[in-house]
Design a protein around this nucleic acid. Structure first.
Lengths: 197, 197
DNA sequence: GACAAACTACCTACCGTTCGGTAGTTTTTA
DNA sequence: TAAAAACTACCGAACGGTAGGTAGTTTGTC
């Protein structure tokens, strides 16, 4: 729609993912986009409303991609899981950047109320979806879980968020990829289980 | 040593664990301790130095407790692991509060350089220690790992950090305890393995 | 009396936000 | 169809508030 508004959202999201919402300022965004501070307020009246807009755009984009995968009959539960990992694998190549939801979750107590609600809904949706992939995978006999789908979905989600957080503090750049490999081991496909037997 | 200095560190740590370093202010600490803002600066000249002092105290206390456990010949690797979990189990009863290292890791890019160094060293030490518990447990034949000690230590550490982060956004208050239970399943003691066989 | 600890008062820098205003485009209306 | 009205995008200047930090002074204690 509006090019400027989108560029503001882009710059804002980038800043949240690298430094957090508190550290993100209108001035930073203005410098990045190439406009003046009050012009941002013209598009997004308050910082809280800008934050909400960033979350909603992210969530809607993600939800649309999920929908596309789940509606494709050619895709297995394993494919869906790999798709779930893909954003994190992408983040693996951009050091010092975390998932948007993880960055915001870390600031929940100091976030404006409207944003808190938005973050909670997003994270809950994120967890529910992963649980559903696992549950359906077991039901179809495509996945072999080491634990219950609910428990394992929590472990995987938390591990991914945690590793994005922690890797910024370690020199070990491949840690995120290793974690994803470890997560794959916790969710074995039937074929690889048969190989082990 | 000094009562006031310790109370400043206490209040500061509490504020970092709930809202992060950026959101922690001298004014907040002063109000909490019951003194004026410049009095804090009398004890800790800059915010960065205060941050470093908080991290160092936390790390030293933790390291001392670790030492105590590892030197006790009566304690098994399983006991050591349970001790490793204990701070997280304690945090489970204090909602909206995360581990100090997790809170700071989330702000790495906007932290003063002196603090970044401190945080990195702390987290690396934390990971190394967990890996050592697991490695030694396998060596002694006390633990049965589902993956390599290095890989599994990363999964566990990241899961713990991640779940502290994420739980603030979910109504599910027992999630942290469930995660720790799931982690226990990934590290089975020999006796429980034999029960399964 | 010496020294640390706490104070009052103040500084600069930056925050989100508001205000008043300027172009240029679109819509309404006679 | 042409003038009037409204709207969009942006701007400079300034607001109240708060941040971290400084200078100088008083208070309490050995």
């Amino acid at each position: 729609m509006n090019a400027t508004a989108d560029r503001i959202l882009d710059a804002g999201q980038e800043l949240i993912q690298t430094g957090g919402f508190s550290a993100m300022s209108f001035q930073d965004i203005a410098s990045e986009v190439g406009i003046r501070k009050p012009s941002i307020i013209h598009h997004f009246p308050t910082k809280a409303e800008l934050g909400v807009a960033i979350i909603r755009r992210y969530r809607d984009t993600f939800a649309a991609q999920l929908q596309q995968i789940s509606e494709d009959p050619a895709k297995s539960s394993w494919d869906a899981l790999e798709f779930y990992f893909s954003p994190y694998l992408f983040l693996a190549s951009t050091p010092d950047k975390v998932c948007l939801c993880g960055a915001l979750a870390g600031e929940i107590p100091v976030l404006p109320e409207v944003m808190r609600v938005e973050v909670k809904q997003f994270i809950e949706a994120h967890q529910r979806w992963l649980e559903e992939i696992l549950r359906e995978g077991v039901e179809r006999g495509e996945l072999m879980l080491i634990d219950s789908s609910k428990s394992l979905s929590r472990v995987i989600f938390n591990s991914l968020q945690g590793s994005l957080l922690v890797r910024r503090s370690t020199e070990d750049v491949s840690q995120l990829k290793e974690i994803i490999n470890a997560m794959r081991k916790l969710v074995k496909s039937e074929s690889s289980i048969q190989q082990i037997r």
